[in-house]
Design a protein around this nucleic acid. Structure first.
Lengths: 354, 354
DNA sequence: GTGAAAGCGCTAACAG
DNA sequence: CTGTTAGCGCTTTCAC
């Protein structure tokens, strides 16, 4: 004689069966309604929806995954750099992840320890990987990933390899537009601080700057280009160099906000007013851009949206691979940037540095 | 005659049964090994672990949740402020969340729109809520949460209400220690920039500063205390005020890194060397502290660890409530801070501001 | 258009 | 210390 054991349910949340009972249909029908399948009579659907609302029913993600046989997990690998960028990125990933019912595993890695981190992530049964900068440009990392044949999307990388997916803005065009904006303001000597040499976006931005100068008919003075590495510290040095010039620029366009903020600091230290005596523009629109004073005119990368897009792209790829289909139609998506004007740019003084 | 249907498995990942078969035990034993239960003979455990390694087995989170009857979801509500802090916080939450097999829902909210955000979060079947600053001090938010009787942990709040849980450092003691450090260096006139009046941590830090001055036998000059709001902008103004004083301080202790960075900027603008002419210290050790130059001597809040602790605390509370038990033994946990010395503090000049 | 049965991978409860 | 059984909440497959 076997006594039926009691339910093991611990949560008091309503289940699909509760809804079914209340609506007077089978659980299967409820499932169909939830998933928006067409083959349900409108009147039935309505009854089910009423029941759902009344019970405040929400489907269990765990059960769906299990039953649906689709347990998606994607990894995010990042180095400690650019925390500003990363936070926005992460929020976007999570948001889209929960919407798409997929788990996000975050792995921080030190420089040089990427391989171990990748191993650790893969060990956690990752189905795909998201690479915020600067990892998408790290050749060793990319090579290893390619070897392992795992779907990867490189984000904010100027030039992603063909075999990988990518989401980015048009860095070249954005820098081009900013430079033209500066020229339109009346600036003739426009300084540029470049980014880290090992990131392809740096090159794109420099190209954009150069292209605009050419198109606008402004002189290309190599002295007006100072090398930076994207760090605040490097921005300090680069700005000093630029402002030490005999014919110093009246505007400086830095390849990111950190270096632009550093440029503002240097200008202030020299008693120059920003933007009165010197226009300073950045790139990225990170938290720093609105932290410093004056707030920076910069190029906004919609990092949160890019993250969401990256998640979607990756998920689609994973599903396609599972289904045995070929790759994506559009593996490289380019999203729109925005030039946002704040308080750090202005028309140049009539007699610069009088 | 019913033909048994084939397996519906879609993933090729190994399951607990695969491991069990390979190790020659039952799935239950494997489960015990995975969950670190003691009651398994060492030799058996070893065989199982070998099989796990060989198959590269990783348990399915979905199945565990479902079977364990525990589907935990916790929310993180945040405003747009202090992105620096938030990103570290979030990474900590996620990390612990995946370790504890619980989902994290992040909800951003504008000021004044907290109520809607809470509603949205609760609608997503949240079992508990994490509140990074400054939300833990927002009375309206806390009142609403209390009303709804949902487990809450306030993080980095100086003084959390009794009914809530909290994780924080001892802000008062940290500020006390920093101030004493400055005094020990030989500074006599130590300026202080306070934080936002509506955050309890601000008060704690001010108290710590005052207490140290008293204990060390230094004069309490109200003019040396400038009000700030934690923003960079407010730090700019406060620093100007402090340095305009006839008897200006030789050291300024700002209640957070943003304002300390602003102080450095003001000092530089006035031609003062940091730390040569002016010592500047911050609080938090956010990304900003190591972004600016010189890098800031500051109080390190282990935000990532605090987030992990907060997740654990919340989960424990949720489980206790479900089990119908009383609250936690230790609802308010205080974690250790650290005074980290970098390049922004030094012994005062013999003849200050000569 | 709707329902019944079976099973996703795991663990709680109970038995040995 | 280890195994058996049943069931978590949902969806797939097949039958009507």
């Amino acid at each position: 004689m076997i006594e039926p054991r009691g339910s093991r349910r611990q949560r008091n949340a309503p289940t699909i069966s509760d809804v079914a009972a209340r609506a007077g249909v089978s659980p299967m029908t409820v499932s169909r309604v939830i998933n928006g399948e067409g083959s349900v009579r409108p009147s039935t659907r309505e009854r089910v929806e009423e029941a759902i609302a009344a019970l405040r029913y929400a489907p269990s993600a765990a059960a769906r995954m299990l039953a649906g046989g689709e347990e998606l997990r994607i990894g995010v690998l990042h180095t400690s750099t650019s925390l500003f960028y990363f936070s926005e990125f992460l929020v976007g990933c999570l948001d889209q992840g929960s919407r798409q019912n997929c788990q996000i595993l975050v792995e921080q890695c030190a420089e040089g320890a990427e391989s171990a981190a990748i191993g650790h992530l893969l060990h956690g049964r990752i189905d795909g990987l998201l690479l915020p900068p600067p990892l998408g440009d790290a050749e060793k990392v990319m090579a290893e990933l390619r070897e392992r044949d795992i779907p990867v999307v490189a984000v904010s990388t100027g030039r992603a390899p063909d075999w990988a997916l990518s989401v980015s803005i048009d860095d070249r065009k954005a820098a081009y537009e900013m430079t033209r904006h500066l020229a339109a303001l009346g600036h003739v000597r426009i300084g540029f601080i470049s980014g880290a040499a090992n990131q392809s976006a740096s090159r794109e931005r420099l190209d954009g700057y150069r292209g605009a100068l050419t198109d606008v008919g402004l002189e290309q003075d190599p002295a007006l280009i100072a090398d930076g590495t994207f760090s605040y510290r490097s921005g300090l040095d680069a700005a000093e160099r630029l402002l030490d010039l005999d014919a110093a620029p009246t505007a400086i366009f830095a390849s990111n906000d950190d270096m632009a903020a550093a440029t503002v600091a240097v200008a202030h230290r020299r008693g120059l007013d920003v933007p009165g005596d010197l226009t300073v523009c950045g790139f990225d629109d990170s938290a720093l851009a609105t932290t410093v004073w004056p707030e920076l005119t910069t190029i906004r990368q919609p990092v949160g949206d890019m993250a969401r897009t990256a998640v979607d792209l990756l998920l689609r790829e994973i599903r396609q691979r599972r289904a045995g289909n070929a790759g994506q139609d559009q593996p490289h998506v380019v999203v729109d940037y925005q030039l946002v004007r704040r308080q750090s740019d202005a028309v140049p003084r009539r007699r610069p540095r009088s």
